[in-house]
Each structure stands twice: as structure tokens, then as C-alpha cells.
Design a protein around this nucleic acid. Structure first.
Lengths: 181, 181
DNA sequence: TCATATATGTCAACAAGGCTGACATAAAAA
DNA sequence: TTTTTATGTCAGCCTTGTTGACATATATGA
């Protein structure tokens, strides 16, 4: 018997290590979505609306198909949520200039306000966690999450791409550091 | 003083830093649940079943109310899912010895097999991510996730509690280190 | 012992947000 | 001009959450 760290097989995580990571992810993710969910409920919206508001806010002028790609849901599912957001005045659609079949999406001022309110709660929570953890831990947090996601999505963090330092660590650079270049 | 890194306001994360963390969590969590979801579908189960199987496997002999506490759902929601798992032979209930009102939960051998299959996919993914990230990054990952969750849940990681080194870092110790004591 | 509280379960109804399948329209592209 | 693409829509289904009301067995305190 034989354990993981100094043990022979680096691909096998010890039970405790594994389960700790599983539960950390579960509880952290839950906590991270709790406050936004509260706010959204006041508008009759759910987490699906949040995702749309977030990504449209992040990429104003994005197309419907690009949004479908990011969210990984069907157009029927998106349609229901997006339709509500448009009807309720949080998102507007304008025809594409090059391709007039497209409906480019952006937030209205109301939409931006809601987006800010939602994101603010997460900013506060992240700031607290980062402050309690230290800069080095934050880098590790980024690196592991980056390596945890599907490769297909890693590309989205392209400006912050893997660097192999001493051939070991692979992960995104922080926004701060990237901005310094 | 100062901040996480070295900017002026420790409670305010720069836009890029904030959004990067939000998206890392989103995509990592999605990737992390993808394979189990696939397997569960073969049994006609969903993510809710996974949670029950996971936590019952983790805490054999747990009570229904303890499980409700962990999952943060209503007993009616749990009942539907738990009922299926019992009927389908993945979970058994036995009366509590001290308190015969309780139904202590545990996995059957079939249940344990499914639990292992589900967890194995996550073990592989975590092992790959940890290997690509390095031990230091993994510690940071744990620390930040610990600090990100609600305090109520932090208690669950009690054996691995905060230590304040030089009054800065707060977070769980790894299972490995805790195990060494 | 009796009354109350607790642990658990059940029935019914509803909502959010996924899914599939089929079909429609406008515009681009071949 | 025909075909493909971007988008939308209707209809129906599933999972998994919710609330509210009520039921049963057991434990516990007065």
C-alpha cells in the first residue's frame, strides 16, 4: 500500500485528497451562486438568466450562436430565457452589419445595472477569499481550475496561456500580470 | 496595505481578475460534472442522485436529516430521489439503534460500484489537473475554495482547519498532511 | 402516563430550465 | 436560382427544485 504523494502512482489520488477536492468544489460553487440567485429571484429570473446577462455583458455585440456555444445549451432553451430578457428590457438585439441574419446582443442600461449588482456580490466574495488566501494561493487556484476544465474551454483563456516554467506548471496568468505587458 | 497583490484597494478586484475567476469557476465546475452526468444518464439518474450517492457513500449510516442539511434541499425533493435509489437497490435504509425513528442510510454493493465509477472519473480529472499544476498550486486551490464557501460549510473541513501563518493565509490543510499527524 | 416534539414519509401542485423534433423565415453563399 | 446558415417558434417531455398539508412512529418532558 502505498499512497499518493510519495507513492508510486502519481495519477492516483488518495481517498481523502480526492473527496476533499470534490467537496471543496461543491460547497464553494454553491456559495458562489447563492447571492446572485437571491437577487435574480426578485426579478423572476434564475441562474440561466444570470449566465446570459453575464456573457452578453462580457461580450457586447455577440451573436446568438456564439452565446449558444459558450453556454452549451440548445437554442430552444436559450430562446426562452433570452426572450424574457428582451421583453423585460434587459437585453436588446440589433441586426448584424455584415450579416443581417444575425441578432447582435447587448445589455440595455437596465441590464447593465442588474449585471453590475449581480457581479458585485461575487466580487465581494472573491475579494474576501483572495484576501484571506494570499496571492500565491490565488495563482494556484487559477492554475488548477484552468487545468480542470475541458481543453475546449481553456482556449477561452488564451491571452493568459500556459507557460511551462521548469517544465512543470501549466496555467493561466493573472489578469493583473497579463495587463502589465 | 494591502492588497491581494499590490494595488490600492484590497477589496476591489480589477475587472479582468474578477471575470477571469468567475469564468474559471464556471467552466471548471461544468467540466467536473460532465462525465458523471453521462454515466448517470445510463441509469436514468441525474445529478441529484449523484449527490445522494456521493454523500451516503462518504458517510455511511448517516441520517436523512443530516443528508438534508448537507444538500440544502427540502425533504420532498430528497424523498423523490432517495426513493428511486432505494427502490432500484442502490441505497438501503435501516432503523437507528438508539433512535428507532431514524432511517440510517448506506449504499448497497451495487450502490458502491456506481459510486466508485462516478468518483473515478473525477479522480482522473483531478489527478490530471493536479499533476499539471504542481503541489503548490494545489494547496492554493484548496485554500481559496475553502475561503470562498459559506462559513457554515467551512466547519465541515474541520479536521483540516485554518492555520494563521504569519497572520496571513487561512485555509484547510491537505488530507495528506492531516493524515500524517 | 399523557401531551408534545421530532424524524421521516407522502400527496399534490407548481416552476425553472434542460432536452428532442419539426417547421418557418430571411439572408448569405454557391 | 438553389442551398445553406442564423435565428426563431411551437409542442411536449424530463429532472429537480419549491410550498403546503397531512400521516405515522417514536422519543421525551411534564
Amino acid at each position: 500500500m502505498v499512497d499518493v504523494k510519495s507513492g508510486p502512482n502519481p495519477l492516483f489520488l488518495r481517498e481523502e485528497e480526492l473527496r476533499q477536492a470534490i467537496e471543496l468544489l461543491y460547497f464553494a460553487y454553491r456559495g458562489f451562486t447563492a447571492e446572485p440567485d437571491q437577487i435574480l429571484a426578485d426579478y423572476g429570473f434564475g441562474r440561466a438568466h444570470h449566465r446570459v446577462i453575464y456573457f452578453v455583458g462580457r461580450h457586447p455585440g455577440t451573436t446568438v450562436s456564439a452565446l449558444l456555444e459558450i453556454l452549451g445549451i440548445t437554442k430552444q432553451s436559450l430562446s426562452r430565457v433570452l426572450g424574457q430578457l428582451v421583453r423585460d428590457g434587459f437585453v436588446v438585439q440589433r441586426p448584424g452589419t455584415h450579416d443581417r441574419r444575425q441578432r447582435l446582443l447587448e445589455l440595455t442600461e437596465t441590464g447593465r445595472e442588474l449585471e453590475r449588482a449581480l457581479t458585485e456580490t461575487q466580487r465581494v466574495r472573491l475579494a474576501r477569499a483572495f484576501r484571506n488566501s494570499g496571492a500565491n494561493a490565488v495563482e494556484g487556484f487559477r492554475t488548477v481550475l484552468y487545468n480542470l476544465m475541458d481543453e475546449a474551454h481553456q482556449a477561452r483563456f488564451a491571452g493568459l496561456q500556459p507557460e511551462r516554467e521548469a517544465g512543470r506548471e501549466v496555467g493561466p496568468k493573472s489578469g493583473r500580470e497579463a495587463g502589465r505587458r
